[in-house]
Design a protein around this nucleic acid. Structure first.
Lengths: 174, 174
DNA sequence: CGGTCGTGGCTAACGGCGTTAGCCGAAATG
DNA sequence: CATTTCGGCTAACGCCGTTAGCCACGACCG
């Protein structure tokens, strides 16, 4: 069951888009460079996607799905450990910084995402917070903030981010 | 002393850019619309700034300066209160969402910012954290995460964000 | 077996973007 | 009065996303 929401060709296009994004960043993900990588011309892409944004939505869905899987894996290795979840979240985001930002720095295209994906991604953290939604949201905000501030070079160069992560996790989950 | 880093005309341009950004968002902040608003043609802007990014850097500096002022005001009204700082941070960011994102969602152009501005913006929070840098950074990440997730509509529509803020502040500053 | 039609390429082109080159009038400066 | 500097201008370049319209091929049906 290989994502029947998309044709095989559409999946190839998304895969190429992802390579381009992760290798070279969002500025180099253009319809022309994407087509080049596939050996076709830019207008042909519109036979498979209505516009560029639709391709980005698929990348967003991939990121959400993989992040959810990473969190679930961390949870099953260390049940109930918020520290393990935080580590997994940080590791995934920093391993795919461009993808993480693309998926994160714009409104969530909820109606175009697979059903239940958003909820699935949020579940492990909610469980680790004992069902406390407010705490889960605060913790998510902390983790997201740490990741994007780090990706964008917002912390001082000599900042000890491991220590800040530990301090935040400790405060949020005593 | 009205910012001698810029000529009077350059300041007018930045002011127009800010209006445009706050009214219509980043997509409508183009060199052509900016020139239009000033009654000139786009190429004339390059007599005052080397490129568009330089204008954005000035907007970033404005945002940093105003956010620092807002935090300092909150601190002087409620010395030592992390809750008051958090409230001020949130209120400022949500009052200027486009400006906040523009200034925040890219690397900090440190060398082109006024000396000491970055440190000044960080100081009130650091003081409220009793000098604990790790806690201050974790708290900043929490606040930034809450703000950008809210701006980008990432939380469920029915999420109680006031409660999540309170819960986070309480956990980080018991 | 032959016609029809959908699929997935193509070229040409449009309008908008940031930006550059080069011109020019007016104001300030010697 | 001469000269330089300042701040406008037009024209144009090479990108961008996107559209229109054409065509080759393979599948499918009578």
């Amino acid at each position: 069951m290989t994502d029947d929401r998309l044709t095989a060709r559409a999946r190839e296009i998304v895969a190429a888009a992802r390579e381009l994004l992760e290798e070279s960043g969002p500025a180099d993900l253009t319809m022309r460079t994407l087509a080049d990588r596939l050996g076709i011309k830019a207008p042909s892409l519109y036979k498979h996607f209505p516009d560029k944004h639709a391709v980005e939505v698929e990348l967003t869905a991939q990121m959400l799905e993989e992040a959810a899987a990473a969190m679930e894996a961390a949870e099953s290795r260390h049940p109930g450990s918020l520290e393990a979840l935080a580590e997994a979240y940080r590791a995934y985001a920093l391993a795919h910084p461009h993808l993480y930002c693309l998926a994160t720095e714009r409104p969530l295209p909820r109606t175009r995402l697979p059903d239940g994906l958003e909820a699935r991604a949020a579940l492990p953290l909610l469980r680790a917070c004992g069902g406390d939604q407010d705490l889960a949201r605060a913790t998510w905000a902390f983790a997201h903030g740490m990741v994007v501030l780090e990706i964008h070079g917002r912390f001082p160069d000599d900042a000890d981010l491991d220590a800040a992560w530990k301090r935040g996790v400790r405060a949020l989950h005593p």
